[in-house]
Amino acid sequence: MKIRFIDAEAPPASRIFENLAAGHGDHPLDRYLKKGRIPHIWCSGCGNGILLAAFVKAMEKGNFDTKKTVVVSGIGCIGRAAGYLDLDTYHTTHGRAIPFATGLKLANPKLNVVVISGDGDLFAIGGNHFIHAARRNVDITVICSNNFNYGMTGGQGGPTTPLESKTTTTPYGCSEHPFNLVYLAKASGAVYVARWTALHTHELRDSIIHSVNKPGFCFVEAITPCPTAHGRRNKLGDGLSMMKSYRDNSVLTTELDPEETAIGLKGKIAVGEFVDIDKPTFMDMYDECAICRANAPKKSKKS
């Protein structure tokens, strides 16, 4: 067979870098963003930008080494966050950010590995990976932007869609019970679990700093407005109205049992830090159980 592809020459290096830095550096936090990647793709009123900003501020305040901090994301609106950050970033397949991050972390334990992804990615297609990484206590931080639906594909129902909530695939109201992510994370073995809304920028930032510094599997849920899809279909108003509802309905608590923190379509949202415990990480136990024993001097048969 004779093959004839059309000509497709790569541009010269000079053209690749041309105009890449235009406008970059106007904001002091630009140093955490890759050149030429802004504007982002998110809708107006979306909370993902706020979450990205909280992460960037955590990088700054936490004084995290940009050389050693790696962000892995899955697929979905917030999955694009990885590509904006001036770090080593990996935008993987749908649901697979956590096992990818597990490989990165275990192959180089010196890295700070952070997964930033959405509720559908982490808890539907990737749900199994979430619970097993938490069970193993792999030393990674998982940040979930929970907007209660699949925004990227236009607003379908998902694993956190509240009962009776309308989406493009639950036109009469959602008939499935949703996950309570705080409760799920705790039950799966996470050593740190926090929930905030997009309104709680400082708390989000501080929870991210704490998670990255804390050894073990840490989980931060960020309730994020999606006015374009979930908000519109459920008459929750524009982005600003949704933020106002977070202000009016968030209840800060450390007392509440995670089981009692489920979120409905409307009503109160329990926010705060729900779990903060210490236990050996996967690598701690692997070093102790496998590496040390495999390399221990052999006992003589006589003993």
Binding site: P99, K105, A107
Partner: peptide
């Protein structure tokens, strides 16, 4: 996924 991450 894990072996790809490790290789990276």
């Amino acid at each position: 996924a894990a072996i790809i991450g490790a290789s990276c």
